[in-house]
């Protein structure tokens, strides 16, 4: 079976919007991330399992509104006892599954059902503010938050402050709408799709 990325038919590389006369570093960069393993970990409400024992690719499960990461893997807090893992190690779920017994956890592979858009540049926060009600200036590197962007439910992973970089995760079925919303907000500043 052929894997088609969620933005295969909408994401085209090039420069768009008000990019004329601006230096490359001043432009926003928009990129689609695909081909990652994405899975959700949910701990059952009546479980007393000690979470400090769990390590995924060497990472602990993060606390509220935080993420933990290394070069290959990022773990985001989605809600109480609920985490989202995305990784470039495609067999990570097989390697780590033995830590999660069925009495305490539900592990769901959702690699097929998410769109990930990466935004980078000095004006990332301005783009987020156009469609998202979060007070984005209060979020720092290593934070994450669920919210909405023009009515579309998203998860924002704040990757770094210098350079300012975020990943926006949405449902695959909303991928095109989300992409159009975000790139439309980027037009004013000029962006480079890579």
């Amino acid at each position: 079976m052929t894997n088609i990325s969620p933005l295969n038919f909408v994401h085209t590389t090039g420069k768009f919007g008000d990019y004329d006369g601006k230096q490359e570093n001043d432009l926003l960069k928009v990129k689609e991330l695909n081909g990652l393993l994405i899975f959700q970990i949910a701990k059952y409400k009546d479980s007393n399992f000690d979470l400090s024992k769990i390590k995924i690719d060497g990472l602990n499960l993060p606390s509220s509104l935080k993420s933990s990461s290394n070069l290959n893997t990022r773990i985001l807090w989605l809600g109480p006892d609920n985490w989202l893992v995305f990784s470039s190690i495609l067999d990570l779920i097989v390697k780590e599954k033995k830590q999660f017994d069925e009495l305490n956890f539900a592990i769901t592979n959702i690699s097929h059902s998410r769109t990930i858009i990466e935004l980078e540049g000095n004006l990332v926060n301005e783009v987020l503010k156009k469609g998202c009600p979060l007070d984005v200036n209060t979020f720092k590197e290593g934070d994450c938050a669920n919210s909405v962007y023009n009515g579309i439910t998203i998860t924002i992973d704040f990757i770094s402050n210098k350079p300012n970089k975020v990943r926006i995760l949405g449902l695959r079925s909303f991928g095109e709408s989300l992409y159009h919303s975000i790139t439309d907000a980027c037009l004013e500043f000029g962006y480079k799709a890579i």
Partner: peptide, 10 residues
């Protein structure tokens, strides 16, 4: 109680 202050939109 879990995420802090957020807009009604959420």
């Amino acid at each position: 109680p879990y995420c802090g202050h957020r807009s009604q939109k959420e």
